[in-house]
Every structure is written in structure tokens, then in C-alpha cells.
Amino acid sequence: MSSGNSNGHPAHLAHHFSDAAQQSESAKIGMWIFLLTEILLFAGLFVAYAVYRSANTEMFYNAHKHLDIHLGTLNTIVLITSSLTMALAIRSIQLNDRKKSIKLLAATFALAAVFLIVKYFEYSHKFDLGQLPGKFYTYTGIEGSNPHIFFSVYFMMTGLHGIHVIAGMIAISWVMRKTIQGKLSSEYYTPMELTGLYWHLVDMIWIFLFPLLYLIG
């Protein structure tokens, strides 16, 4: 194919690829497969949710009232907005507008931080009340059997998601650094594209967590 790599071989092209298109597409397939594994990791929690909600419909309904729907909605808005800024950041780098891209990445990072801060307040409120997962559950105000299971499911789902948000923030700050250093451009922006895919997935999972946990009808 293109064996003329010696001439103008870009710095980001690894030796075993024949050209940059092959490399960037490989990276993207790899990323999508990684996202697939993430979806199946969460699958276990979704199944656990479905099983225990179907077995304890009343308890789930009663327990969900103890989640703060306002904070949940706020966080949904925050994450959706951050997804939008992420998508726009990639668009900017595609247009080679590095400055705008950096600003949009910073906005994404800030929104992610807001999400975590809101989550922190939600968590600490529950900690105070003893609405804790599993055997640490001490709250007594919820009708129905085994309310600790609801909080187990709640903390595992949002906790695992929260870990993904933190990982996403690390990735965002890493591509931001790369962009500031001038390593990314419209010629090569694979790292930002992959980070974007990851961040959208984190958003997508929250899109399901929010109604499942906060909006049980």
C-alpha cells in the first residue's frame, strides 16, 4: 500500500501501521469495543436493578422518594450540556480552531466537576440519614421489605458511574494538555475524538440511570 512513509512520516504514526488512516480507524474500532465492554459491565447492574425492582415494586417506589429529584434533574442538565460542549470541542479542532476547542474542553471539564459536586451533596445527605447500602443501612423511615437493597443498587450504579466521570475528567484534562501543547490539529485529533466517545457514553448511561432511579412512577 503506502510504503512511502519515510517521506513525511508523521510523529504520531506508529511503525507497524502503514498509514495514518489505518491507525486512526484502528484506534476508533478499539475505542468502540472498549465502550461495548463498558455497556456490558453496567449490564449486570441493570439486570440486578430489574430483578429487585420487579420483586419489590412497592419498596422501590417508596425508597425512590428519598432521592432528590431536583438535584437529579440538575445533574442531568449538567451532563447533557457537557456532552454538547464536548461534541463542539471536537468540531472546533476539526476546523483547526484550537483556542475555541480548549475553551469548550474546559467547559466540559467544569461541568463534570459540577456534576461531582452535586453528587457529593446528595451522597453526604444520605450518609447523614443512614441511607447506606447493604448492612450499613440504618434509616427506618421507608415502608416495604429490604429497603437497603434499593440503596445498594443506587450507590453501586451511581458510584460506578461516578468513577467513570472521574476517569472522563482525567481523559479530558489529558487531551486539553495535548491541545494546548499544539499536538492536536485538524490533521490529527484521534485522542480527543476517543475521549469524546467515552464522555458521551458516560452521559448516555446517566440518561438511563436518572429515570430508573429518580423517576420511578
Binding site: 465492554t37 463498558e38 456490558l40 459491565l41 453496567f42 449490564a43 449486570g44 447492574l45 440486578a48 429487585y52 447500602p133 447493604g134 448492612k135 450499613f136 421489605s145 429490604n146 437497603h148 437493597i149 445498594s152 443498587v153 453501586m156
Partner: peptide, 27 residues
């Protein structure tokens, strides 16, 4: 494999925190 991952994670949590997903004593 990711499902194995979440399974053993839940098992560890069940042992450590009694989350009540797999242990009948915890529901």
C-alpha cells in the same frame, strides 16, 4: 468478560458490605 467483572465485584461487595443482591440472608 465484563459481566464476570461486575459479578465478582458484586460478590466482593456482598461479602464486605452485605448489599443483598446475592446473599439470601440479606434479601
Amino acid at each position: 468478560t465484563p459481566v464476570l467483572g461486575i459479578t465478582v465485584l458484586l460478590l466482593i461487595l456482598e461479602r464486605v458490605a452485605g448489599i443483598g443482591i446475592f446473599d439470601p440472608a440479606m434479601g
